[in-house]
Design a protein around this nucleic acid. Structure first.
Lengths: 183, 183, 183, 183
DNA sequence: TATGAATGAGGGTTCATTCAT
DNA sequence: TATGAATGAACCCTCATTCAT
């Protein structure tokens, strides 16, 4: 479909420019130029600039969570956690723009409660998994949300590190995560 | 001194508003209003808005590093690391606005090489400490920069978590850091 | 075309106000108001205020030179010089605003080498004509550039004088020019 | 007197900067800096910026007219006119900043009727001289004001030319003036 | 659906002028 | 007289959004 193509091009152009110049230094006019559409066209697919930013974030976040969503159907073990952690890290390394956009978006004022609530189900499921892990004496008896935050922060800085240093290491990094939280 | 007072008020007003509304959604007019000075007064103390943002970051970063600067004069051990980590976390918890401003500033386009180069000495010293720790078989044989990033990310999300949950726990959090990187 | 109409209206409004109040005392807001367009519309047709000023000058200068451009295809004689001089003076008298804008622009900091270089071909051709006139013993053996300056200054103050006094005289004025430089 | 020294320094600084950067691109702060006085000091000697500009013009214009004022006590002849014209030109060549400031001031909106009326006596006297010259068949029967304008314009462009080309010629230039208006 | 010229509120910044010292 | 920090109106310009085509 032509229209879906345009929407995609707008999102791709926005992603590229947001990472390159920052969200607030990227005008809608520039996005439309990069996407090769008219300025007004953006407003056919998005309510306004904030809506575009939010939808871009949501689409990327969903994509980034695919691997962990699979995990939810399993129980937590060293192996399963490692597999999914590495797959997700790999996704971040292979999608540096998407990854960096999320890093920029997260502490920004565009990141509202409202948006994050869309992912609360996912969060709750992961927390449940962690609670199982604690019960099974796989993980330390810490607040499950703390472990979730640890996981997320660890993922983030590790991807940054790998992108920056281009290292092939993975397992030793995972172990810094696991050793930190294992029982 | 009157003039130093005004400069301080401008920085405080900027900090408050940047955290509340985001850097780019805070106009200089609003800052001056909040600081109870005239618009032009900002430009008596800062070259422009970017200069104000940068100087605010530098002053906060320096303040946040005071505790770690002390660490540099010691050698790394479980005890010294714990003491300084907890002191720094405490600073973050007690200065949530300053902490959150740094979080917002870090991935922003205002965070240039030029600014961070002012802190490169500090970074080098910490890396040296970490290298010592690796040699002394206190820490895992990982890239020292990775351990530094780990430390920094761990600090960040832990402060966020403590602010959010108001928990009094500290030691158990520090252990997730240390267990992750210890030999 | 609507768009060309707006551009023209902006140039006309700018010309009127620049002459009335001076270039630097005319704000872009006032120009847009006089032209009955929005402030931003100016920046659709001009890069910035300086660009607007420059383009206005260039368009007027080109218009003012049309008569002299014809002269270049002739050789210099009393008759040809008189005819073209009078035509150009007539243009100035009939376009007092354009004429006065040029007078204001010439000694201003907006009058850069870069702008005038666009007319250097014209200048060179006129100098060549003057050199011919000197060779043919029509004109005094003076530096050709001096004669060119004389011509230009004479034109300027004569137009001013005619506008001010509304005199119908032309020929006697031309003779003060010609008697000054003739062989 | 100290105070007169400061006033002089302000006028000199203003002159220098006006010529260098243009009147409107020169802030009072910059003038005070160049004059090595405080910003407020300017307002002890001048009502406001416009007053400073006007007084600077008046002082320079008066200085430039000294030679012609002498002429008024003589009658017009080729010799007297030449002598005074050359002396005045020499003044312009030796005071390029003052000369160029006048060129910039003349077509500007700061040049009001009110200011020029201060020199109307001088103008009237010169006109009277010219009228005598016409009666005595030294000069063409042209409107005396036209001859005055001619003289003034001729003076102006000749000084410009001499400054630009650094030529030592004088007499041949005067002759283009005199030949233009002689009987 | 798609366009892009047009809008005008709001942004960062400057600077003539004032006034407490 | 002299200072210079402080003021705030006014400047130029940007850009999210609209709407006639």
């Amino acid at each position: 479909m032509v229209e879906e193509d345009k929407k995609k091009r707008i999102l791709e152009a926005a992603l590229k420019l947001f990472v390159e110049k920052g969200i607030d230094n990227t005008s809608t006019a520039l996005i439309s130029k990069e996407a090769d559409v008219a300025t007004g066209t953006i407003y056919l697919y998005f309510e306004n600039k904030v809506d575009l930013i939010s939808k871009l974030y949501i689409s990327i976040k969903e994509e980034s969570m695919v691997n962990f969503l699979d995990l939810i159907e399993y129980s937590v073990s060293y192996d399963s956690l490692e597999r999914f952690w590495i797959e997700t890290v790999e996704w971040g390394v292979n999608n540096p723009d998407k990854f960096r956009f999320m890093m920029q978006f997260n502490p920004s004022p565009y990141h509202t409660e409202d948006i994050e609530s869309k992912f609360s189900d996912f969060g709750k499921n992961v927390v449940k998994l962690i609670e199982d892990g604690i019960k099974n004496k796989l993980l330390k008896d810490l607040p499950p949300e703390y472990i979730l935050d640890f996981l997320s922060a660890h993922f983030t800085f590790t991807v940054e590190f790998i992108i920056r240093t281009k290292t092939k290491e993975r397992k030793i990094f995972f172990e810094t995560l696991f050793d930190g939280i294992k029982y």
